[in-house]
Each structure stands twice: as C-alpha cells, then as structure tokens.
C-alpha cells in the first residue's frame, strides 16, 4: 500500500481534511470547517432577507424573465432535493460551495480549463464553474460527495488512495468525478482513452502516473504505472 512507503509523521495521524469521522467530531465543537459552516449558515440567513426584497423587484419584470435579483431555485444533487434563493449570475460551482454546503468541487481557474470543479450533469462531466446554477435546475447533479463516502468509497476513490494519486489534493475531487465518468463510458479503457478522457483535468503537482494507475485498478485492469 502506497501510504506505508514513508515513515509516519504526526500529520499522517490526522484525519483527512473534510472527512466527517467520529474522530473529528470527538475533537470538540470548534473545528475550522464546522466554524466556517456555522458562519455560512448565518450569511445565508441574511442573504434570504435581501432576496425577499429583490424578488419583489424581479416580479415586476417581463414574463419568463428571471433576475437580475435573486430568485428561488430548486436542485437535485446526489439524489437529494435542495432549494436556494440565488441571482441568475451565480454559477453552479458557487451555488454548491457557497450556498449548499457541498464543498467537494473545487474552485481553481474558474474559467473552464483546469477541471477541479468537475461535476456530473445528467451523467456527463461538466465544469461547474461554466454552468449557471439556474441552468442546472431540473438536471441530476452529481458531485464528488455523491460518488462515494469515506465509509463507502467508490472503487475509483479506493484506487486513488491505493496509488497515492494525489499530492496537494486540490485537483483530486475533479479527477475522481472525471475518472468515474470515464469508467462509466469505458469500463475497460486503454491508456490512450484514459489520456483523452482525463484531458480536461490538470494536476499541477504532476500526479498523472498515479491517477492513471488508479483508473487502471478501478477498471480491473491491474496496477501498471503510467
């Protein structure tokens, strides 16, 4: 196993960031992430007040035209229903991260180039930064949180762990979602297919070899590097 190749450091004993385990909860009520979540909820409450005013203004506009103020939106994400009151200019990525408490998709380039924000829209991988939230209503959205959980990992997630397919880890959620989509399209991909289908994701640490090996393992094609 890749994680046993190096001596353990104190950091290795820490639970993975963003993982809600019994251990994190036991550390007390003031973890950084939980604190941020509390602040976000307070922000959402005040945004709700403002949106009521904007709704009234928008209601006087042309029929079938929403905004520019906030409007009520409904989403289906990872099989669950969500509602939010957002301006039409809010991207799906910002809606997920800033309003719906789904921070798995990452904001890196915000220009449809790096792939860190990859989510599935009706099963197709898309850049959530380049989709408006208002457009995603009525679609099945799947984020990395819906691919698998720490307790019940998707085979590609286990393979990323086994092959140390991340360094800083910031591109990892996007790669996991893109890899899951790749395996849906091509259950037994050759290396060219893996290169092509993951071409829309960048890893600045350069862990591509590990990622390709992880895809090969998840596809049942062994653990060849490269």
């Amino acid at each position: 196993m890749a994680q046993t190749r190096y001596p353990k450091t104190p950091r290795d004993e820490q639970p993975e960031a963003g993982v809600e385990s019994a251990e994190t909860k036991a550390r007390g009520p003031f973890s950084r992430r939980q604190f941020l979540r509390g602040s976000a909820a307070a922000g959402a409450a005040s945004a709700g007040l403002l949106s009521g005013i904007l709704d009234d203004a928008a209601a006087q506009g042309e029929p079938g035209v929403a905004g520019p103020g906030a409007v009520d939106m409904a989403f289906k994400i990872n099989g669950k229903a969500y509602v939010a009151t957002l301006e039409p200019r809010v991207t799906l990525l910002d809606a997920l991260r800033n309003h719906l408490d789904l921070t798995g998709a990452k904001k890196v380039c915000d220009r449809g180039t790096c792939g860190a924000c990859t989510v599935l829209l009706n099963g197709d991988p898309v850049y959530a930064c380049s989709v408006l939230a208002i457009e995603a209503q009525g679609a099945e959205v799947t984020t990395v949180e819906g691919i698998g959980s720490p307790a019940d990992m998707h085979p590609i997630q286990q393979a990323f762990v086994d092959h140390d397919a991340q360094q800083c880890g910031f591109c990892t959620p996007g790669f996991v979602v893109a890899s899951a989509a790749l395996l849906n399209r091509h259950p037994n991909p050759d290396q060219d297919t893996v290169h092509r289908e993951l071409g829309g994701n960048l890893c600045r640490c350069g862990t591509y070899a590990g990622i390709r090996a992880a895809v090969a393992q998840a596809a049942g094609g062994g653990t060849t590097n490269g």
Binding site: G64, V65, G67, P68, P88, R89, I134
Partner: peptide, 19 residues
C-alpha cells in the same frame, strides 16, 4: 460578473423576442 436577467424559452420565436 455583472448581474443579468435570465430567460430560458421553449421556442425560437420567444428566443428572438427575448433577444
């Protein structure tokens, strides 16, 4: 990004009118 209005018509006639 500046705020904008959004519309998602079902017909090309409505699209041209909205545009």
């Amino acid at each position: 990004m500046r705020a904008f209005e959004y519309s998602s018509p079902r017909t090309t006639e409505d699209a041209i009118r909205l545009l």
